[in-house]
Simulated assay, not measured.
Amino acid sequence: MSAIVGQRVGFGTTYGFGEFAPERLVDDVVEAEALGFDMFGISDHLHGEHATLETWTALTWAAAATERIEVMPNVLGLPYRAPAVTAKMAETLDRLSGGRLVLGLGSGGYDREFAAFGLPVRTPGQKVGALAEALEIIRRLWAEPGVSFDGEHYQAREARIEPRPARPIPIWLGSYGPRSLRLTGAFADGWIPSLTRLELSQAVAMRDAVRAAAVAAGRDPDQITCAANVAVVFDAKRSPTPQVVAGGDEAIAGQLAEIIRAGFTFLNVMFSAPEPRRRFALEVIPLVRDALAQS
């Protein structure tokens, strides 16, 4: 089992915000590991005027440079890659990294990106259906010697991957709508919304929906990691907003402790430069843990 599946408090960092500096990728992930972060994530936006790295290639590069920290695409846009191909990609990276992959998946929220690449642009309902089909194909390919599947969006004909994964690879979904939240509760190992898009009260209501769906599916809801992507800005003069955690060390720690107490036990934090990441690890994380210990 992945070390971060469960209800312990964990902290990750996501690469790719702020200045585009691919030459710093290895230094950034090595430092993140040394600072004690639990996860290193990379977002999946391949089209646009802002410079980016291809997510899976960069994630593999990051995993090869480290030994302990887990890696996650945060999150893969489903239309970019066929589910059966994603299943094999995940098996290989998880094996080569020594079991350090968390497979983050999303149905694809930015239609213009997929349209630009000539990929399917689906309605909201179709996106949920495609995600459900993809989950079935991926999980079956990981577990069965041959898979045939005839869905509305995806097909497979006696597909197989060898070797199959050495362990159950965790899947976290970046989902928001009612149907996709039910899908998350029924089938996923984790849920990772972005609090840059939601107020905390909205996220809490969605979390309740995920957990209710898990119970309805006969699952233990405590086995689903409820995580959150969080933007942090160090600025003692700046007031926080529902989308941005801001202030000095103690103010930021207090806001993050509130998010964790609300049920989000894994925080994936976005920084614009290396220095705030160092300050967060050295100054803020201990304050958060102290605050939680006193709760």
Rank of each mutant, 00 (worst) to 15 (best):
T92A: 14
V210C: 09
A291W: 06
V71M: 06
R8D: 14
R289A: 01
P193C: 04
E33D: 06
L181P: 02
R277A: 02
E67W: 12
V85K: 09
E158K: 15
F266A: 05
A87W: 10
S295T: 15
Q155P: 03
S97G: 13
A236S: 11
S295G: 11
E33R: 07
W56V: 04
V232E: 03
L200Q: 01
E258L: 10
E31D: 09
R122M: 09
W172P: 06
G218V: 11
L181Q: 05
G41Y: 04
C226S: 13
A87Q: 05
E258Q: 11
P145C: 00
L46K: 09
S272Y: 12
V102F: 10
G190S: 05
D38V: 06
A32L: 07
S295M: 08
L198S: 01
T13K: 06
A87H: 13
S175K: 11
E19S: 11
E23I: 10
G36S: 10
A213R: 08
L46E: 14
E152K: 11
S239F: 14
R211L: 10
G99S: 11
S43K: 12
I224G: 07
A236M: 08
S295H: 06
A156S: 08
G98H: 04
G98Q: 05
V121H: 09
P168R: 04
F40P: 04
F266I: 02
A281N: 01
S180L: 08
F280E: 05
L141V: 04
S239C: 05
E152A: 12
N229Y: 01
R160K: 11
D189H: 07
D222I: 14
G118E: 03
D28M: 06
A209L: 15
G12V: 01
T13C: 00
V210K: 12
P286D: 01
A205V: 07
F40C: 01
L96S: 11
L135A: 06
R68C: 01
W172G: 02
A209T: 15
A87F: 01
T57N: 10
F11H: 02
H153W: 10
L183Q: 03
M72R: 00
R100V: 09
I138L: 13
F20M: 06
W56S: 02
A273D: 15
V284I: 09
Y154Q: 04
E49I: 14
A216R: 15
L173P: 04
L105M: 08
I4H: 03
L101K: 03
A3E: 05
M89H: 10
S175E: 10
A156R: 03
K127T: 07
L53I: 04
D38Q: 01
A205T: 11
L183I: 05
T241C: 02
R112S: 13
R139L: 14
D150E: 15
K88Q: 14
A227C: 02
A214M: 10
S201R: 10
V244K: 00
D44K: 00
K237Q: 15
L46G: 08
S175L: 07
P120F: 09
V75L: 14
R95T: 08
E54T: 15
Q202R: 08
A134N: 03
A166D: 01
L287F: 05
P163V: 03
L59W: 08
L181A: 09
Q202N: 14
